[in-house]
């Protein structure tokens, strides 16, 4: 595996030709049927959801949609979901639980959308609800971070049994630019922030946030999308039966513990 810096990875995941869920979903899943709407307010194009087959296993897919061009990005709001997107995700996750289908989430977002309507419709509540409900969802959940995993907007699809990252994907509490502008009042120090924040797949593996890294083609996924798809498929072939073989009680206990363990502090009592 490569030893690229966070800044180099940042530029790789911003490559125009980097594959998105629009490439991955048709290539990985047969019989995919998109399901729309949160049943409360509307349908958020920033998150695609649906059912399909991975080999012989029915699965629910929930994916954040980075556009491949400006037109697609406008439609999917540059992959920044509104509350109804997170509520659609929750609806589909509950549906998966009912039919004992594993859930596969694809994370690729700069963050949840920040706007007047998002606040009015409870962006905070929508994310919070997903964190709590996904923690006790009685079906396996697997999350793949494809590119950018931005903050709570990513976490709302990342309370899972196994979190995997593409080799160059990043996952952070805030974008490096936001970090620099808030903590140093200087957004131009983005690159310095990216290095300091420890946001690469290897960093997150060390912190216990990420369980597995999927190798990318040399130079990044955009250099050979077919190979990237193959690598993801290989990982799913291995992981899905493994996750599905664990009993529900055991699975929920492990999921709770996975997050319960994360945190560094001193206990002087």
């Amino acid at each position: 595996m490569s030893s690229l810096t966070a800044t180099q990875r940042l530029s790789i995941i911003r490559e125009k030709g980097r594959p998105t869920v629009k490439d991955y979903i048709p290539a990985l899943f047969n019989n995919f049927l998109e399901l729309h709407g949160d049943r409360h307010f509307g349908d958020d194009a920033a998150i695609i959801g649906g059912v399909g087959m991975f080999d012989c296993t029915p699965v629910t897919v929930i994916a954040q949609v980075k556009g491949r061009n400006l037109e697609e990005n406008k439609r999917s709001n540059f992959s920044m979901p509104h509350p109804e997107g997170y509520r659609k995700a929750l609806r589909l996750a509950k549906q998966a639980e009912k039919f004992h289908r594993p859930v596969i989430c694809f994370v690729d977002t700069p963050g949840a959308f920040c706007g007047i309507d998002a606040e009015k419709r409870g962006q905070g509540e929508a994310i919070a609800r997903n964190l709590m409900e996904f923690m006790t969802l009685k079906t396996p959940i697997l999350t793949i971070v494809l590119g950018e995993g931005g903050s709570g907007g990513a976490l709302a699809l990342a309370v899972c049994d196994e979190l995997v990252m593409l080799e160059n994907a990043l996952y952070s509490v805030i974008s490096p630019r936001g970090f620099a502008s808030i903590l140093w009042k200087d957004p131009t120090r983005e690159s310095e922030a990216a290095e300091l924040m420890k946001i690469t797949a290897e960093d997150l593996l060390r912190f216990g946030v990420c369980e597995h890294i999927i190798e990318e083609p040399d130079g990044g996924a955009h250099r050979d999308p077919a190979l990237m798809i193959e690598n993801i498929a290989e990982y799913l072939t291995e992981s899905l039966p493994r996750l599905c073989s664990v009993s529900t009680d055991e699975m929920l206990e492990r999921r709770y513990e996975k997050f319960r363990r994360i945190g560094e502090f001193r206990d002087n009592s």
Binding site: L131, M132, G152, V159, R260, G263
Partner: peptide, 13 residues
Amino acid sequence: GIISLMQMAKTSG
């Protein structure tokens, strides 16, 4: 960093 983000999931659990 990311550890703080994970506290959101931990507390919700």
